[in-house]
Write a protein that binds this DNA or RNA. Structure first.
Length: 192
DNA sequence: CGCCGGATTTAA
DNA sequence: TAAATCCGGCGA
C-alpha cells in the first residue's frame, strides 16, 4: 500500500485494508479520492484552511471533518507532505467487534449495509474531531493495517459532489470492492 | 457578521 | 422525499 503516490492510485489500494480501534476491526470496501486546489470537488479547492490542514500533511494521517451538522467523515491523507490529497472511507465490513459496532450504530442486527456510508464508518469506529490528524500508521488509538486486496475493483464517479465543476464531477475516483455488498450505489460502478 | 449549503442518514 | 442540524467559507 503506497500512500505517498497519486491519490487516484492510493485510493483503490486502500480497499481491503483494515481499520482497527480497540476491539473493532473494519475492512475497507469503498473509497473516494480527493485532490488539491485543482479538484473542484475537494475540500482543498479553496486552498489551505484550519479545517483541511491535515490534507497537506504527511501520508498516513487521518483527516476528520463534520458534515451536514451531524456526521463525521474519515479520510486517509495521501501524497507527499505539502501536496494536498485524501481518501474518504465510504464503506466497510465488520471483521471483529460486531457487538461494539451494533451499540455505536444503535442497531439491533447486522446487515451488509451496517457500515455502508462514510458517516456510518466513522460512527462504527466511534470517531470524532479528536482523531483529526491522528497518525494511522502508529500503534494505539486508531490504526490502518495491511489486509488482502480484493480480486475485483469497481470504479465510478464520486457521490454527492454536484457542486463541482464539469469534469471533476464525472472523473471515476470512487472505488469499491467488487465482491462486497457494503458498497452504496453499486449500479454506478464499472470494473476498473 | 450573516447567509448558504454541504464528500449524509434515516424514517415516513 | 424531506427533515435533522451546524459550521466552514464566502461575500458584504
Amino acid at each position: 500500500m503506497n500512500l505517498a503516490g497519486p491519490v487516484e492510485l492510493a485510493a483503490p489500494a486502500l480497499l481491503g485494508q483494515l481499520l482497527v480501534r480497540g476491539d473493532v476491526t473494519l475492512r475497507v470496501t469503498e473509497v473516494e479520492a480527493y485532490g488539491g486546489p485543482q479538484d473542484s470537488a475537494s475540500h482543498a479547492r479553496h486552498g489551505r484552511t484550519a479545517r483541511n490542514a491535515p490534507m497537506w500533511g504527511p501520508p498516513g494521517r487521518a483527516y476528520l471533518y463534520f458534515c451536514y451538522g451531524m456526521h463525521w467523515m474519515l479520510n486517509v491523507v495521501t501524497g507527499p507532505a505539502g501536496v494536498p490529497s485524501a481518501v474518504l472511507i465510504r464503506g466497510a465490513e465488520v471483521v471483529a467487534g460486531l457487538d461494539t459496532v451494533l451499540g455505536r450504530r444503535s442497531t439491533a442486527k447486522a446487515t451488509p449495509q451496517l457500515c455502508a456510508g462514510p458517516g456510518k464508518v466513522a460512527q462504527a469506529l466511534g470517531l470524532d474531531g479528536a482523531f483529526d490528524g491522528h497518525d494511522l500508521l502508529a500503534p494505539g488509538g486508531l490504526e490502518l493495517l495491511e489486509g488482502p486486496p480484493p480480486p475485483r475493483i469497481l470504479a465510478g464517479p464520486r457521490l454527492g459532489i454536484g457542486f463541482a465543476a464539469g469534469e471533476d464531477q464525472t472523473r471515476p475516483w470512487r472505488f469499491a470492492d467488487g465482491g462486497s455488498r457494503a458498497v452504496l450505489h453499486r449500479k454506478s460502478l464499472l470494473p476498473l
